[in-house]
Structure formats: structure tokens, C-alpha cells
Design a binder for these strands. Structure first.
Length: 442
RNA sequence: GCAGUCGUAGCUCAACCUGGUUAGAGCACUCGCCUGUCACGCGAGAGGUUGCGGGUUCAAGUCCCGUCGACUGCGCCA
């Protein structure tokens, strides 16, 4: 018999059906055995009764996570047994036969109970099956889909950036060097140079891929491998054009999440943010003036914000502009990479921005230098050797439009959207110095 | 890398501050009973080198030192 998905059973009352899926939980009353089955579309309660002797015997053996194919009849539940709080609470499957496709060992803990993060990570192949994890990664999948959909609709072209790159790293974060290449190649810490090169090919491009940071950071918002959502666009007037696209992109993502993931957000107890039509923006120095005035701590000379100040500014944006988001612009030239475009009105600052969301930085972007001579000069002034960047520099040597873009951390965005405390909860298989799956088997 | 907190049954925790007989609970597991549960219920049972190493003490899960690991925060970043 053809398999029926569990979500479709409600229209099959009185019919014989076959479902396939997992045992979610079993409640054995002796003569009556209740089993909740789940497949990718949902859950349903089934009941094994003694009159179907063979099926009843099989039902006794079933345990959580066994994989089965079950045939039976869909019955309307008696009035008193209707459970309005759950999916398919008004019907049940009367089991007529059970085929066991795969047995499961005794679970180390009950599925869907609260676990320490460490235990959760030790048992990912099992814990990713929980309702909570499924909700998190469904939301993440929809963020990626919406990102891709929006940009494709805006005539951006998606491309694959290499993850093995040469020594011409942009500086900043430490890179993993690769022994195979005589330590002259690294894992990419960003697709930055490649997306700029691609601007001269397709004008507007985006890339979704892993990037690698060799930092021994141990925080709730850092990973050695994460997914970067990157865009780069040509023919902009300034970083403001990039911010406007970022803004509209976030509006689109939020609306798609509202359409497709309302249940998941409800389960995780986090509100889907309202993205303002115009996300508030202020220059770094303005933000610091506010912090200095409000907290009494003078930070006017600092080149960047610390995490506490980022949290403060997010609070400030919420209270004063009713926004979960705020752009901070014009970071000092000294703190930005060599390709950062200087503010024409004050070359000590750059046409750059960070986007803060619920207390953390989720994106960084800005306008890039597109003039060849200027870029070479800037590389030198940062104490770097232009020779090392000669491949990258070809893009500028042979004509490059004014351009800019941003990089956004997918896992950070996911975690913050869903109110998760640790970024590892928003990462399927998090990599860090003490954890790469079975490298750490005990 | 630094700082703080933590590490006890398969899981989540109690007992630690104030050292003292046999280290407890809930869930999971095994066995028995149960025809309306949906976190099913009831009864019984099994399950521990208290992360590891050292020290203090008549006596250490408990106090001290070291070490390994985790979490939180910081630096750096997305």
C-alpha cells in the first residue's frame, strides 16, 4: 500500500492507510498500547488492541526511535478522547500490522527533555531529532531560502567562492594554514576578495558558504566554522545603498518567516521581529556620545564598541526607535581593512557599517575602494605587500565600478532571532578547538 | 589566552557552605498489574571508583593544590 504522510491522515477517516516513520513515545496499558508515531510532516497517536493479535505483540516490543511501517484504519476518536491541544488530536490510527524497518538502542535520555549543551552536542545525531532542534534548523533553512530568493529577485547572481585560498588574506582574523600546500594556502576567512572580483563580472552577486576563523575564542557567539551570507553590489553611490538593500532584505526575511515558521517561533518562545522600513542609523561617534552621556563612562576615543556597549545601543534603539535593529556607521579607518572606502568628508573614518540586532553584531559591511592606485597605496599604508595581492588587484587594474557589500553571520542571526543563548544551538555541527564530532570520542 | 562558576547514576539534579554509619530524588531501563492514555498510572528491581591525580585529617562527594573538560563573561570578530 502507498505510504500516506501523517499530515494527510485527517482526510482519511474510515480508510485503511499505511504510514512510515519513527516511534515517538509509547504508553503501554497492557491490553491497550498507545504509540505516537512521527514522520517529517507530524505526529499521530496509534492504538494497538488485542483483537489484532500479531500487531499487538509487535507493539509491545516497540521503543522510542524504532523505525516502522504501520498499516491500519483511521478512526475518529470518541468524543471524550479528543485532545484539542495536539496535531491529529481528533483521530487515531488503529494498528493492524507493524513492519519493523530499524530497531533503536535504548536512548541515553528521553527525547525532548532539557539537556546541558554539552550533552546535546555529544549526541547530535539523536538530539537534532527533537522538536526544538527541528524548529531551529527549519527556521535557519527558511532564512537561507529567503535570502537567496530576495537577492535573486533583485538580479543578484549567486556564486560559489573557494574555501582554499592563498596567502593574500585580508588580515584581521587568524587563518588556518594548510600543510598540504606547504602552509602557503589557508582556509578562507571570508569570500571578500572573490565577491569583489565577481562584481566586475555580474555587477551584483551573493554567496552562501562556510568561512573559517582560527581564533581560540570561547564565547557564546563565536565558532571556528560558520556560514557567511555575503553580498556585493556594483554602481553604488555610498555604503547607504548597501544599507538600504540590507534593510529590504531583512524585511523580506522576516515576512517569509512569519509566513512559514510561525509555529517554530511559538515553540521556541521568541517573537519574529518587526523590521522597520528604515532601520535607525547613527555614526559610531554619535553612538559613543550617547553612551558617554547615558552611562557616564567616556568611550569617545575607543575605535570600536565592546559587547556591553552593543547591548546598550540595542536597548537604546528599542526604547527610542522601537527597533530591534540599528546600524552603526563610520568606523575609524585604522580599524577597518585596507579595502574600506574612506568617508569623503573625513578620511579618518570609513563608509562602513555594522548592523546590531538584539545586542550583537550580525553583519558588517560598507563601501570598498574601487580605484586601483588608491587601493595599492592603502595596502602599503597598512604595512602589507601589494605583490601578494596582485591576483586580486587585477580586478581593479582592469576596471572596477564603485561597489560595496556586507557579510552576515547565519548562525548568529538564527540564534538571535530565536532567543538562543549559545550560537552552537543554532549550528548543526559546531566546530571548535575541543569539538569536531568523533575526534572527541571518549 | 584571561577571569568566574561548575563537574555526583544513562539524563536532569540534591547532599558540599558547616567533613562523620549504607551518597539520594525524578525521568529512562528491567519485571509484574492495568481497555482510553496523550509527561498514562500503580508496585517491585537493577543502576555510583562523586572527571582524573595529589594533599590535609582519625575520617573527604564535602576542605586545599594540580590537571582535564564544560558553561558564562572578556579580548577578537560575523
Amino acid at each position: 500500500m502507498e505510504r500516506t504522510y501523517i499530515k494527510d491522515l485527517v482526510g482519511k477517516i474510515g480508510e485503511s492507510v499505511r504510514i512510515a516513520g519513527f516511534v515517538d513515545i509509547r504508553r503501554d496499558h497492557g491490553k491497550l498500547i498507545f504509540i505516537d508515531f512521527r514522520d517529517v510532516t507530524g505526529k499521530i497517536q496509534a492504538v494497538a488492541v488485542p483483537s489484532h493479535e500479531e500487531a499487538h505483540e509487535a507493539a509491545k516490543k516497540l521503543r522510542p526511535e524504532w523505525v516502522v511501517s504501520v498499516s491500519g484504519k483511521i478512526n475518529k476518536r470518541p468524543e471524550k478522547m479528543i485532545n484539542p491541544d495536539i496535531q491529529n488530536g481528533d483521530i487515531e490510527l488503529e494498528i493492524e500490522s507493524i513492519e519493523i524497518l530499524s530497531e533503536a538502542a535504548e536512548l541515553p535520555f528521553e527525547k525532548d527533555t532539557e539537556l546541558n549543551l554539552d550533552t546535546h552536542l555529544d549526541y547530535l545525531p539523536l538530539t537534532l531529532r527533537t522538536d526544538k532542534s527541528k524548529a531551529i534548523f527549519k527556521v535557519q533553512a527558511h532564512i537561507v531560502r529567503a535570502f537567496r530568493e530576495f537577492l535573486t529577485g533583485e538580479n543578484f547572481t549567486e556564486f560559489q567562492s573557494p574555501k582554499l585560498i592563498g596567502e593574500d588574506a585580508e588580515g584581521g582574523a587568524n587563518v588556518f594554514s594548510l600543510e598540504y600546500f606547504g602552509n602557503k594556502a589557508n582556509l578562507a576567512q571570508s569570500p571578500q576578495f572573490y565577491k569583489q572580483i565577481m562584481v566586475a563580472v555580474f555587477e551584483k552577486v551573493f554567496a552562501i558558504g562556510n568561512v573559517y576563523r582560527a581564533e581560540k575564542h570561547s564565547t557564546s557567539r563565536h565558532l571556528n566554522e560558520y556560514t557567511s551570507l555575503d553580498i556585493e553590489m556594483g554602481f553604488i553611490a555610498s555604503h547607504r545603498d548597501v544599507m538600504r538593500v540590507t534593510n529590504r532584505l531583512l524585511v523580506y526575511i522576516a515576512s517569509e518567516l512569519r509566513k512559514n515558521c510561525a509555529e517554530e517561533f511559538k515553540l521556541l518562545g521568541s517573537p519574529i521581529p518587526e523590521v522597520p522600513k528604515e532601520i535607525p542609523a547613527m555614526k559610531l561617534r554619535e553612538a559613543q556620545a550617547i553612551i558617554t552621556k547615558e552611562t557616564g563612562k567616556d568611550c569617545m576615543k575607543e575605535p570600536d564598541l565592546d559587547p556591553e556597549q552593543e547591548r546598550f545601543l540595542s536597548e537604546y534603539a528599542k526604547n527610542n526607535f522601537n527597533s530591534d535593529f540599528i546600524f552603526i556607521t563610520h568606523y575609524p579607518t585604522s580599524k577597518r581593512p585596507m579595502y574600506a572606502f574612506e568617508d569623503p568628508e573625513d578620511p579618518n573614518y570609513t563608509n562602513s557599517f555594522d548592523l546590531l540586532f538584539r545586542g550583537v553584531e550580525i553583519a558588517t559591511g560598507g563601501q570598498r575602494i574601487n580605484d586601483y592606485e588608491k587601493l595599492v597605496e592603502k595596502i602599503k599604508s597598512k604595512g602589507l605587500d601589494p605583490e601578494k595581492f596582485s591576483f586580486y588587484l587585477q580586478a581593479f587594474k582592469y576596471g572596477m565600478p564603485p561597489h560595496g557589500g556586507f557579510g552576515m553571520g547565519l548562525e548568529r542571526l538564527t540564534a538571535k532571532l530565536l532567543g538562543l543563548h549559545n550560537i552552537k544551538e543554532a549550528t548543526l555541527f559546531p566546530r571548535e578547538i575541543n569539538r569536531i564530532d568523533n575526534l572527541l570520542s571518549k
